[in-house]
């Protein structure tokens, strides 16, 4: 099975089976990447995402104007407010989607990038990649919530205005998705067995 495995490569775009010598997929004609060159691209996107993570959490994400009162809140501050007001499920969802999962994704992606050539924990690494692939875009939830709130509540005496952290958060999520997309999952344990 070891020899036959090296002979065939799955196209990540259309799922077709190609031989290991094919540079382009026979079915969809898109490029089949089967070397480790993706590591640098994936790492570059990941570092960019980490850079955007800090301003996304430090700067305020939205400004609320209520009659003559104006206050701004960060992501963490917003979660505390939700928790204090008793909206525990939403506070947990926002905490998971906006704080914990992005941070976990950085750690997991970094681990996957540096250990892709290693033959240890192959099954675990494949499961971790699936987790990254599925959970990745869900961090956009916060950006979309701000978008919806700001577009609904824009009256004279009560309004919600997005602040610059939304942009940083959006860029962080986009670069994390790009990092995960450029990571070639087929190369996990490709030289093992």
């Amino acid at each position: 099975m070891g020899n036959i495995r090296k002979k065939y490569v799955r196209c990540i775009h259309c799922g077709a089976t190609n031989t290991a010598f094919d540079e382009y997929c026979k079915r969809c004609s898109l490029k089949i990447k089967t070397d480790y060159s993706f590591i640098y691209t994936s790492l570059a996107f990941l570092i960019t995402a980490v850079i955007f993570y800090f301003p996304a959490n430090i700067y305020p994400i939205l400004q609320t104007n209520k009659f003559f009162l104006t206050y701004t809140s960060t992501i963490i501050g917003g979660i505390f407010e939700l928790w204090k007001s008793g909206d525990y499920p939403i506070a947990i969802i926002v905490f998971l989607a906006s704080v914990l999962i992005p941070f976990l994704k950085f750690v997991i992606l970094f681990y996957l990038i540096i250990s892709v050539k290693s033959c240890k924990n192959i099954k675990l690494k494949r499961k971790l990649y699936k987790f990254i692939e599925i959970s990745g875009p869900w961090s956009l939830l916060d950006v979309f919530v701000v978008f919806v709130m700001a577009s609904i509540i824009h009256f004279q005496y009560i309004s919600i205005i997005p602040q610059k952290a939304v942009l940083y958060f959006l860029l962080m999520v986009i670069f994390t998705i790009l990092s995960a997309m450029s990571f070639d999952e087929r190369m996990i344990g490709a030289n093992c067995e």
Partner: peptide
């Protein structure tokens, strides 16, 4: 090919959950 490339950048499901979260708020 168009579907294969674009499907990963469609976030209608997340946007729907965002609408629900905003409504609950």
């Amino acid at each position: 090919i168009l579907i294969t490339i674009m499907k990963d950048w469609c976030f209608l499901d997340i946007f729907f959950i965002a609408i629900l979260v905003s409504l609950i708020k």
